[in-house]
């Protein structure tokens, strides 16, 4: 069951490499948050109570509900329905996304031989998700899409933690959550400002501070 969930997590990110609709991005981010919640529930009994409840809250309330709602508010505020003109055309994104996704399985195979303590499938999917999230950040022009890429990165990091069964102290987990929540708030605030200043929140508008060698 957890393998199916992990693969579903990866398929979601692969789908994002093909799409340009903001609504789809947000749906995939919410879906990944829910999958992470289910994977945490799977580990019930293997981690201490406090950590379990914290991680369950983080994945269900924060990653599945709060973050997608905040992202949706940004989309509404900036009136960006889709990424119309990415740096890399749609076909190129499909090819790159597929290659990266399949490479994830090669990583899975390598990790299963290198370190048996790691959940190799989840590790491979997390790595390919990270790479595709980076690809989205670099290849898309809309700032809101880049924020989506950042949140996908955060989901990939959460899957990586589950794959490696690395437990951080509760204090650190709490701090990380607080930081990312505040960061989302700042993104919301500044994207709103950018929208009211430039009308179009695209990376191409942010070029007034460039230097010439």
């Amino acid at each position: 069951m957890s393998q199916i969930l992990t693969i579903l997590f990866g398929v979601g990110i692969l789908y994002l490499a093909l799409t340009s609709r903001m609504r789809t991005y947000i749906q995939v981010i919410a879906l990944q948050g829910f999958i992470l919640f289910l994977l945490i529930v799977r580990d019930f009994g293997h981690i201490d109570w406090f950590t379990f409840f914290f991680l369950a809250f983080e994945t269900l309330a924060f990653k599945t509900i709060i973050v997608p709602v905040m992202l949706w508010r940004i989309v509404e505020r900036t009136h960006v329905a889709r990424e119309a003109d990415p740096n890399i055309p749609q076909f190129g994104s499909i090819v790159i996304g597929t290659i990266v996704f399949l490479s994830g399985f090669a990583v899975t195979d390598w990790v299963s031989r290198t370190d048996p303590s790691v959940d190799a499938l989840a590790f491979g999917i997390a790595v390919s998700t990270l790479i595709i999230a980076f690809f989205i950040i670099l290849s898309r022009k809309k700032l809101i899409t880049q924020v989506m890429g950042y949140m996908l990165m955060q989901n990939a990091v959460a899957l990586l933690m589950i794959a490696m069964a690395v437990e951080l102290p509760l204090l650190v987990n709490l701090g990380v959550l607080l930081d990312i929540f505040t960061l989302m708030f700042l993104f919301l605030l500044f994207l709103g400002k950018l929208h009211s200043t430039y009308e179009e929140t695209s990376r191409e508008k942010l070029t007034s501070l460039r230097d010439q060698p």
Binding site: L143, Q146, V147, Y150, L183, L186, F187, F190, K193, L194, T197, L206, S208, L209
Partner: peptide, 9 residues
């Protein structure tokens, strides 16, 4: 505003 966005992101 441009500098802040770049810095934060």
């Amino acid at each position: 505003l441009e500098a802040t966005w770049k810095y934060v992101f």
